[in-house]
Write a protein that binds this DNA or RNA. Structure first.
Length: 214
DNA sequence: ATCCCGAGGG
DNA sequence: CCCTCTGGAT
């Protein structure tokens, strides 16, 4: 069980992440809000790198909800077979495209209700879309952010919703819009699940983890 | 709580 | 081999 980081330590951590990377963005590749939405749905329990490899062919072949809907479930599956959970994802994306066309004029809705009503879209995906496309101060708690928040003592919680609320409470307002991306990148490249790379961690001295490796 | 499920790393 | 990767639906 990690101790909680102090308010001052948290502020200093975000100052450093900001200084090192002033405008962090997702590593998912996309050319429109629709494509970001699909990419995030595909990224469940999969790496961004793997998703990008698939979408580099999928998106040119079907750039819009109309085109992707007409590809159909089986057509979509052909492009994403290299991604885990691909059958479920192909089904969800095909249905998601139809719903976008029928209920939202082919546009990505900008409210949580409508987003979470889409197949394959839950709280985490809705939060990513609201933050990345519509620049709302949401915190999407994925596997990385859940781990990092608990391990560092940044915003501990027993489930993802608890961690989300803790982050919204504890992250300084001026960093809230970009905090999501800094935490993801930190979790992906430094504070990794197995044997975290504490040597060379930007916030090592601020971290309350009980299992630091240096 | 369980299922879905391929690729890459250690 | 086992673990992990920007989860969601049942």
């Amino acid at each position: 069980m990690p101790r909680n980081m102090t308010k001052a330590a948290i502020a200093e951590a975000f100052r450093r992440w900001h200084a090192a990377n002033p405008e962090p963005t997702t590593e998912l590749e996309y050319g429109s809000p629709f494509q970001l939405l699909v990419a995030v749905v595909l990224s469940a329990q999969a790496t961004d790198k793997g998703v990008n490899i698939a979408t580099r062919k999928l998106f040119p072949a079907a750039p819009t909800p109309e085109a992707m809907a007409s590809l159909g479930e089986a057509g979509i599956a052909e492009y994403i077979k290299t991604i885990g959970l691909y059958r479920t994802k192909a089904k969800n994306v095909a249905m998601l495209c139809r719903q976008l066309l029928e209920r939202h004029g082919g546009e990505v809705p900008d409210d949580r209700e409508s987003l979470e009503a889409l197949p394959g879209v839950g709280r985490k995906t809705a939060n990513v879309v609201l933050n990345t496309i519509f620049r709302q101060p949401t915190m999407a708690v994925d596997t990385h952010i859940f781990r990092v928040s608990n391990r560092m003592g940044l915003a501990p919680g027993k489930d993802v919703v608890a961690v989300e609320k803790a982050l919204l409470r504890r992250v300084p307002k001026e960093y809230l819009l970009d905090a999501h991306h800094w935490l993801i990148l930190h979790g992906r490249y430094v504070c990794v699940a197995r044997s975290p790379k504490c040597a060379g961690c930007l916030v090592y001295d601020l971290c309350e983890a009980s299992d630091k490796t240096v």
